[in-house]
Design a binder for these strands. Structure first.
Lengths: 150, 150
DNA sequence: GCATGATGCTTGATCACTCAAGCTTTTGTC
DNA sequence: GACAAAAGCTTGAGTGATCAAGCATCATGC
């Protein structure tokens, strides 16, 4: 019954925590008919100047494959949150644009998810939250670095 | 293009980081024919005094449903990492026990995953890792707390 | 001592994603 | 300016999980 290294314990806690944290947020979003990943799509699109992104860029920015994006976006197009557009000079690329309805849904859903986020971080003060964010960012960079040189 | 609350940014970073961190570990484990979740099963079992756990306890301890456990364990039994046992006084419960082979695989795989974990946390010093672990634990408790009162 | 309900697990259907293969369009080379 | 290679997306097959329903087994009240 040997014990794990500190690194491994950190990662175990990371995984456990994410699982616990995501549940309430998913349920907050379900009221708007969105999954967390779908909300992420709306979020990324709403951050751009023209509400438009290449499918490939969207994919990598939310940590999905191209095919994952295709399958995720299909129903979102069907309900009109998002629409297809084509790029002028390149008929290969397919752009995704947030519709007016999508912008509205994003605004509403974001209120819900942020409310959930507040509740979930309730036991942390502002300073702890900031510190945690900083450390996670470091860990993120470190993980990217480790992935590069394999 | 309004910006997100600190809580929400923390959670976004948490999710992004976990995704990045898990990739190298999964690939380290794949050498032993294990997924991260399967390694978790071996880990939980190896922590018990008699290498045995109720399926339901195992489920909740690794954050899966009962049916998830059934489906996860089936192939692991087939390759002999784990075996079924029955409880004396209660024919409903089905116990899972780590076999000798499973113990060996756990020992080997744990070396690999811990090596991966070291690499992934490479850019953090010991103090940062500990601090991060502490803050994540707080967040975890906070999230559990938030889930209770919904 | 027997119906009622609770507990523990499995099964069928479905979902969200991945990978590999394929199709179309563009780019670069000669 | 034709043709191989690359880029961008979609599709078919498979994986890992979920939920809801079902089947045993155990516990309780009368």
């Amino acid at each position: 019954m040997s014990t794990l290294s500190n690194s491994m314990q950190l990662i175990l806690t990371l995984v456990k925590t994410q699982g616990q944290v995501l549940k309430p947020l998913e349920s907050a979003l379900s009221y708007h008919g969105l999954s967390f990943t779908e909300w992420l799509v709306l979020h990324r699109l709403s951050q751009t100047s023209d509400f438009t992104l290449k499918r490939a860029s969207l994919a990598s920015s939310i940590g999905l494959t191209a095919s994952g994006v295709t399958r995720l976006l299909a129903p979102m197009e069907k309900v009109g949150l998002v629409e297809k557009a084509t790029k002028a000079r390149d008929a290969r690329v397919s752009l995704v644009r947030l519709t007016k309805a999508g912008q509205q849904t994003y605004t509403d859903a974001t209120k819900s998810i942020e409310f959930g986020a507040e509740k979930v971080t309730n036991m942390m003060n502002e300073q702890q939250a900031e510190q945690c964010l900083g450390l996670l960012s470091t860990l993120h960079l470190s993980a990217i670095d480790a992935t590069q040189l394999d």
